[in-house]
Amino acid sequence: MKRVKKMQYESPKSIDDAISLISNSPGNVRLLAGGTDLLVQMQSQVADPDLVIDIKNIKEMKEFKKEDGVYTVGAAVTGMEIIEHEEFGSDWPGVVDGVKLIGSIQIKGRASMGGNLCNASPAADSIPAMIASGASAVIAGPNGRREVLVEDFIKGPGKTSLKSNEILLSVKFPIKKPNSSGAYLRFTPRTEMDIAVVGVGINVTMSDSGICEEAKVSIGAVAEKALVVEDAATALVGNKITDEIIENFISKVRASARPINDKRGTVDFRIQVIGVIAKRALKMALERIR
């Protein structure tokens, strides 16, 4: 006779306790921060965990600090905390562009950027912006901590490089270069409360004479995960940003997109529009440097 199982809930106070729980629990274990993905998945019976570990009561998970120019954003820091952090917003406006697009204000009051990262949706709004910023994921496990670039952290739809006994601790941003800025733009049929049909995160550093010194471009929702488009960055670096350079940049972005046809958009539409959105994101980032 089958009994309906009961889900367990734990709320550890330290990283070590959390790792111990996750390492020693058989069955399906899920971490909970804001719960805006997990609870929806449970409600729709996509997720059916035996144990839910709430990480919100671990102090380090809620830390949001800047030390020696390096921001560390704890995995459970909410979207609204990030949006309301003025200095972070002026240093990494592209990341805030992305976070702002995650659901409604109410959702962002709970949802964390760390959760958006671990959920690893190909259409996640904060991920291309994090990648373009050169951010890395700080991971804690039984054998200590390790850091990995966000683009390497994401492996595929819903898949990350976290091992079954590891936890995302925070996202770390490098020291911001002078004369640099970023932007994230996406295309959605609706203005809000929607999911990216295409998304572009970009960061550029310009010289005083208007030459692009450095660039990083990441595109979302056009492959199994957010991609880094090195060709598009190369098209910009060493050049003044003229219309001709922008056209070349657009074509490189389009060439690297490999979307699918689905209910959210066609291949043709996504390839066409990702170029348009990339152009607009680039212009937005340049405008922010000025």
Binding site: R190, T191, E192, D194, I195, K263, R264
Partner: peptide, 16 residues
């Protein structure tokens, strides 16, 4: 039916 929720069944939101 593929779009059985308000994410992919796009009723306008206030800002639309």
């Amino acid at each position: 039916l593929q779009n059985t929720g308000f994410l992919d069944y796009r009723v306008p939101v206030a800002s639309d």
